[in-house]
Design a protein around this nucleic acid. Structure first.
Lengths: 211, 211, 211, 211
DNA sequence: GATGAATGAGGGTTCATTCAT
DNA sequence: GATGAATGAACCCTCATTCAT
């Protein structure tokens, strides 16, 4: 399914991603995108077929896939199950922070749920990723380190919910902690570090605490 | 700021809330709302001034306010600090689950961030609520039960992030756990119970663990 | 099915009829129609739903119906069967010449045949009118004046074909017979008179000649 | 004016003829034609200059010319004037039935009348053919067999009108006479035979009857 | 000679809003 | 106070054509 896009196509997708993440899909017109990208309006239909399909192309390209990471982790004998989970948590934080714009769109689209192609893509992604997480958790359970009953979707909700929610609250967070003077990069590093520690505490509790 | 709305106005707001939560603000036309509500299209501009202001009215009416609850909790001498926090967590779960539609909209609007009136409303709400939470946490810290450094916005991110994220994943959660046969009410009761236990474990860890 | 149209709606239909008859349906834009009628472009969708439905409205209103005329003729005891047929021929000539623009459109639409609503309307009209003609012919056959085998659709093809074909050749006909100096009304009177005599000769032959 | 077209050019013209006859000139896009023909879209402008000129090329190639046939008939001493006219009628039937698609287009174009090149081509054709018919009629009049006053354009209207009108009513005619089971070829043979007899009766009447 | 990429113009339709009543 | 009619702007998309190669 990985398609090679031309420079112009990629530029259109990047611009669209930016604008969709700022104004939403319906709030962004194809003219907006084309103008911002400095490309003729008709190119969107020409390259992607329609505005909807442009969105789908973005989704296909950006959808988060953790399978490879999980496979590596499972094989890695130097790490104990907790370290493996922690490493995956950081992977999530990195990937989502890297793709801030896309994950803002994703958040909205999950609410709106109008485009069946995207709904299906998201469904598949959730199933795929849940299944990977399942394997990783199993691994820790077999070693007797994790508790027996783990509600994976609920756990994932907290993981994804926490990361994406801070994504829409970045500026509030910055102001609250008086971090306005930090550069974008420094602030991001701080955020990621705090998120990482925060989520690890949470996961430790979720995975061990026998309620 | 509490305004009394006529029956027709309220009906319009309820219908708008429903449709905004399904199709987004930009994806919903005033015609859609008026038709669904069985009211003349012109009434939206007539009553509220504009589609945007209708949205603002919804936000003003539905915005979550926990001040009263927190004040009650602080005064309540029968509860220890943990019980107080737990009680507030359940309050959040109840309120958000009760206002599912609105919180779906809120989620999108936080991403899109286009309407300054709403941005300000949300800003105020976050500050107000953070301040309340702050008092409650302080209370537990003074009693020596909670750890000294608590990142309140981060903690709130997990709280709100987890609850709202499950809101957009309700059907996935249902399917994952084979709960399709449950009635809407039963399923909601299950969800709330699970959420409650889950979040309490998390908060316990966050509030006590000295990393 | 007879719908009452407002003055503006009727104006739009008349203008559309004119432009469709000049430039064809696809060759006429809704902007053309609205400008020519001095009405806002959006009104076409507003009043009729779409450009296609505007066309359908024109067809519903203008479709030729001869039932009443034939019923009158059948009852009229002062006329012999030939006179009845001749009277119907003149009715056709009058009606089609009166609605020149519409019948030019009709001609094109029969060729293009893309809109199923219009196809059905035309189908019904043809069946209805064929059936009426059938009754009239029967009447003459019973009186022993018309021959036994009359191919009604073929006869109608000649009738309609001759009238509508002269409709698209009016100017050629005028030039051929050097009638350029005649006023529009005079020319039309001449045409109708010639057509009438011409078609009556044809019908007399068709109805009596035993091949 | 006879131009030799390459295989690709001819293919493009044939495909265009087919699509124009189905959906009209304006209802057919150059993309439709090129795709249906399996040829690059740009080729239409490249080969013919424009979509309009492609249409003109079709007209130039397909326009009906009866001059040669009439010349042969006039010279043929074995045939009496009636037989000559009848033979020409069959020629018309054959040629038009052979070029059904083109004559459907022609019908529409006569109504729409937008392209001056085509208007002129049609004008010339009509004049040319009228003149030929004139000679043939003269021949019969000199022999005292045809009546003195024959309105040639009116007569031609009936001829062309009848044939082309049945062309757009083929399926109605088929259904009316329950000929659905006939193959395309059989049905066409039947139609041509019926048309021939029908039109001959008409022409006999037109040419002899002194009203 | 032939083509895939690209374009500006214009297509039909829907939009939120305003107007006259 | 309330409404149906009406509006201009903007929507996404397709058009015939041209351009660089």
């Amino acid at each position: 399914m990985k398609i090679d896009y031309s420079a112009k196509q990629q530029q259109l997708m990047d611009t669209a991603e930016l604008l969709f993440s700022r104004k939403g899909f319906d709030g962004t017109s194809v003219r907006d995108i084309a103008e911002e990208a400095g490309i003729n309006t008709a190119m969107i239909s020409y390259y992607f077929g329609s505005k909807e399909k442009l969105m789908e192309a973005i989704f296909e390209q950006r959808t988060l896939n953790i399978k490879e990471k999980v496979d590596l982790l499972l094989k890695d004998e130097r790490l104990d199950p907790f370290q493996k989970v922690y490493s995956l948590l950081d992977e999530y934080i990195d990937k989502i922070m890297q793709r801030k714009k896309f994950h803002r769109i994703l958040l909205c689209e999950q609410v709106i749920n109008q485009n069946p192609v995207i709904v299906e893509l998201m469904e598949k992604m959730k199933n795929r990723n849940s299944s990977c997480i399942h394997d990783l958790i199993r691994h820790g359970q077999k070693k007797g380190l994790f508790k027996k009953q783990v509600d994976i979707p609920m756990m994932m909700n907290t993981l994804i919910g926490t990361i994406t929610h801070i994504l829409v609250n970045l500026e509030f967070y910055r102001a609250y902690h008086n971090l306005e003077l930090l550069s974008e990069e420094e602030f991001e590093r701080v955020i990621k570090k705090k998120l990482s520690a925060h989520i690890k505490i949470i996961f430790k509790a979720i995975l061990t605490n026998e309620s």
